[in-house]
């Protein structure tokens, strides 16, 4: 225990010194160099220790992950992303719909999932408005409405000052009832959403002139990862209503949605990686969006480093495990 505390203390002191130096000399390259050195130097040290059959305290792992995540945030490292087929399918669908199509975006997530899901929700909202689609925003989660409003007022609408509420987009907000809501709006919006969030009756909103139910929509994207979420959209709207649905979900549930692709889901954006790929495609297709905020792409730096750290720990852990087993056998 004493040794562990000493290692911890040394590591903490090292971080503080390195951050302090980086702050005094705000040279990005220097910071990147320092952090990479720290991470990989530490990993090599641990690997050596493990070869000599010394166990690693779990708190050391946490510390490594923290540095691997924090360093690229302070000194951004970005990568280029090649969109995979599941993400490209969603992008191409939004791109190929004729301008003026009606797209519904449902923000079915809470603050706990927001860092993962909000980047992709913002990217797709931006894409739809850029392309000239009419967008209906809604939420099946009580906590989603606040995040939806936040996305609209802080990020999306300031970029499109010419878009008008009720004509180019509408926010119909949250309605309690989980999949019950979906079961109704697949045949009638007005029954569940008599008004939008500003208490304007649906009948007076231009977008809803031709839209009576989900069946009249051209495309639906559900952002979420909990219940109700993308799966419920497929079960209660996509399949019975014959509407194309795509999912943007938290990474944890992405594997459970793959069986629905491509027959029941147009495409899947899984976690931050999906968001980063979408943002990359968007930037590539629309050069004027070059300066847009890309939280997804920015998150890939910390992700990559953290994953390298975790993979290294899996290797180190296995070395310890197999050494231990060999020793047991030897005895």
């Amino acid at each position: 225990m004493g040794k562990v505390n000493l290692t911890l203390l040394l590591a903490a002191v090292a971080i503080v010194i390195i951050i302090a130096i980086a702050l005094i000399f705000p040279l990005e390259r220097l910071g990147q160099l320092y952090s990479l050195l720290l991470i990989f130097g530490g990993l090599v040290a641990l690997l050596l220790r493990s070869i000599f059959a010394k166990e690693v305290d779990r708190r050391i792992i946490f510390l490594f992950i923290f540095v691997a995540v924090a360093a690229p945030l302070l000194f951004p490292i970005t990568f280029s992303e090649k969109p995979t087929a599941v993400v490209k399918a969603v992008f191409d669908r939004v791109e190929s719909l004729p301008p003026g199509s009606t797209v519904l975006l449902s923000f079915d997530f809470d603050p706990a999932m927001a860092p993962e899901v909000q980047p992709m929700a913002n990217a797709i909202s931006r894409h739809c408005l850029k392309k000239g689609h009419k967008v209906i925003f809604m939420s099946l989660w009580a906590t989603g409405q606040a995040l939806l409003t936040q996305s609209l007022t802080n990020t999306i609408l300031p970029e499109f000052p010419e878009k008008q509420d009720g004509i180019d987009y509408v926010n119909i907000g949250y309605k309690a009832g989980n999949e019950g809501v979906l079961n109704v709006i697949v045949s009638n919006f007005e029954k569940m959403f008599p008004t939008d969030v500003n208490s304007v009756p649906l009948g007076e909103i231009e977008i809803f002139d031709d839209i009576r139910s989900c069946r009249d929509l051209d495309f639906i994207v559900s952002f979420g990862g909990g219940l109700p979420g993308s799966k419920e959209w497929v079960l209660f709207v996509g399949d019975p209503g014959g509407v194309d649905v795509a999912a943007g979900v938290a990474a944890v549930v992405a594997p459970q949605l793959y069986p629905y692709y491509p027959a029941q889901l147009v495409g899947i954006l899984g976690g931050v990686k999906g968001a980063a790929e979408y943002e990359f495609s968007l930037k590539e297709t629309y050069p004027d969006l070059k300066d847009m905020d890309t939280p997804g792409l920015k998150m890939m730096g910390p992700q990559t480093l953290a994953h390298i750290v975790i993979i290294s720990f899996i290797v180190i852990g296995n070395i310890i495990y197999f050494r231990g087993r060999r020793k047991e056998k030897g005895q």
Binding site: V69, A112, A251, V252, P302, Q303, H307
Partner: peptide, 18 residues
């Protein structure tokens, strides 16, 4: 699914550290 979970959890950590 484990790998995806790791990615998800790290995203949340990135969110908090940001």
């Amino acid at each position: 699914s484990f790998g995806y979970t790791v990615m998800g959890r790290i995203s949340l950590l990135v969110g908090r550290i940001t």
